[in-house]
Write a protein that binds this DNA or RNA. Sequence first.
RNA 1: CGGGGCGUGGCUCAGUUUGGUAGAGCACCUGCCUUGGGAGCAGGGGGUCGCAGGUUCAAAUCCUGCCGCUCCGACCA
Length: 569
Amino acid sequence: MRISEMYAPTLREVPAEAEVISHKLMLRAGFIRKAAGGMYTYLPLALRVLKKIEQIVREEMDKAGAQELLMPIVQPAEIWQESGRWSVYGDEMFRLKDRHNREFCLGPTHEELVTTLIRADVRSYRQLPLNVYQIQNKYRDERRPRFGLMRGREFIMKDSYSFDRDEAGLDVAYNKMYDAYTNIFSRCGLNFRPVEADSGAIGGSGSHEFMAIADSGEAEIVYCEKCQYAANVEKAELFPLEAAAEEMQALKEVETPNCKTIEAVCEFLHLPVVKSVKAVAFKSEKGLILCFVRGDHEVNEIKVANACGVPEVEMAPEEMLTAAQTVGGFMGPVGMDTTKTIVLIDNTVMKMHNVCCGANKVGVHYVNANPERDFKATIVADIRLMQEGDPCPHCGAPVKVARGIEVGQVFKLFTKYSSALKATYLDEAGKEQPMVMGCYGIGVSRTMAAAIEQYNDKDGIIWPVSIAPYAVIVVPVQMKDAVSVAKAEEVYQQLCQAGIETVIDDRDERPGVKFKDADLIGYPLRVVVGPKGLAEGKLEVKARKTGSVEMVDLDSQYIDKIKSLLAAL
RNA sequence: CGGGGCGUGGCUCAGUUUGGUAGAGCACCUGCCUUGGGAGCAGGGGGUCGCAGGUUCAAAUCCUGCCGCUCCGACCA
C-alpha cells in the first residue's frame, strides 16, 4: 500500500469531542470517523485491525469446535415477546416497524434468535452438543454512549452460544470457551485478566469477564497476588469480619446535632469509624430496602439486589423516607419493624459490639447498640463492596484493586432461554428435556480500543504486531534523491513479496511529517531509506515500541533480519 | 432521566458581556523555496455563525422554543 493513495487522514489536533486516549488517537490517526452519537465509520486502517482480531477469534473459536454462522441483525418482535424480554429491554433496544406495521428490533444480542433457530432443527440428544458463533454488528441504544469505541450504540461483537444435554456438558463447553478466550486475548497482545463476574438472577458459579487492565476502564476489579483469585467488585464475596469480644454496654441515646456524615458523628463522639453503622436506602419492586453496613464500608448494589431477590435496586427517592432518614446520618436499625420494611444488614455488622448508629430521630444517635439485643434484620447477607486491602475470599491475603475494560464474557445460561422458548431435545429414554445453554461474547471493536488504551505514548499508537494494520512502513526520507527513492521502492516490493504487510510513504513530504504520521499510526517497525544509511549500505530500522534503532545491512539477509526484529516485538 | 458545559470554514478556537462589513492558526489549492522529527514566503478557495421563531433600522451577539455534541451522576445482556 502506498501512503500517497491510502485513505487515512491524520489530524494534528484532537477533535473536542474525544475524552479517552483510544478515541483521540483513532480520530487523529485516521482510523475512525463519527457518523452519529455512538456510531462510527471504520476507515481502512481500523478495518484491517478489526479483521486481524476477527481472524484470531475465528481461528481459536474453530479450534474449540465452534461453528460460524450469521444471523440477521433485524429480528422479529415475536421471539422477544416469547422470551419476555421485549418489555424488559426498554429504551435500550432500537425498535422499528416494517411497511405492514409489524414490529422488529435491531439485535442487541441473539439469545432469542439462536434459541428459536436451534429448537427448530435439533430434536435429539444425538445432535448435541452444538456451539455456534457469529461476528456482526450489535445495537444498543445506550443512554450514554461514550469513550469512542469503548461504549458505542453500534459495535462489533463475536457472540456464541452453546447447547448441551446437561450441566456437565455445559461445563465442558464453558471451559473450552474460557480457554479459547484466554488464547484470543493473549494472541491480541492484551494485558488482561479473567475475573469472576456477577451472574445476576441466573446465579451459580456461572460467569467470568475478561478484563483488559486499564485506568480508563469502566469496571473495577479486585485481585489477589498470593493466589489466583480475581473478581469484578460487583461479585467479590466477603466473609464477615470478626470484631474483638466486648462486654455489652447499656444502649444509650446521645444528642449529635449537625452531624450529617458518619465521620462527623464519630468525631463528635470520639469513636473510631469502625465502631459505627451507617445506612443506605434503596427502592425496589419489593418496596423500600434499608441497608446497614459498617461506617467505613460501602454498599454493593448488585449484592443488595441479589440478596433481596429483585432484578435491580436504585437509590430511594426522598419521598419514600422520613425526615430523620433524609436529613442524613440519623437512620438506624434499632426499632425497625423488620416485617414491614426490608432491613438488610451486612454480615459484618452482625459481628460488631457496642456500635454507634442513627436513632431515627433528627439530631440523635445511639451508642452501645448490639446486634440481636437491640436490632434485628429481615435479611443478613454480604452486601458490602470489597475494598483494597480486604481479605481475599480464597486465601485471606489483602486484595488489590484495579480498573478494567470488559472485552469478553463467558456466561452459563443454563435453561433460562431454552425453557422460555421451549428449545428441547429427546434423550435416550425419549423424554423431552430443555437444552442447557451458555453464551460467550467478545467485543471486537472494543478490543481494538482496549489495545490502544494499553499501548500508546505521547506520539501515538503502539500496535502489538499481531493486530497491527501493517507491520512495516518504509520511509524514503529524501524525495529529491532519486537513488534512495528507487531503493526504498525496491525494499518495499521485496518486503511485500516476502509476505510482510508493508506500506511505503511515497508522499512528497518532509521527513518530519512522515515520521510524525508513522508514529501516530503506530506501525511496529519503521524502515528509513536515505542517503546517509545507503552510503554505508544500510537501512535504519526503528522499533515503535522500544524506540531502538538498528542499522541493518542491505544484503541478501536483510529481510530475514527484519522478520526476526518483528518476531522479537 | 437529573445536573453542568459547548455548538462560528475540514480541525482547534477567538469574537457574544456592551448588537453595527465574520476572524486567527492549522488543513486545502497555485507558485517559489526547502528537505533526517508536523519548515518559510507570496497568492487563493471555502462559513445560511446548530435549527426555528421573536425583539430591533440592524442579531454570531439579546429573548423563547427545539435539535445535536460533551462531561458528572444514575443505568448497563
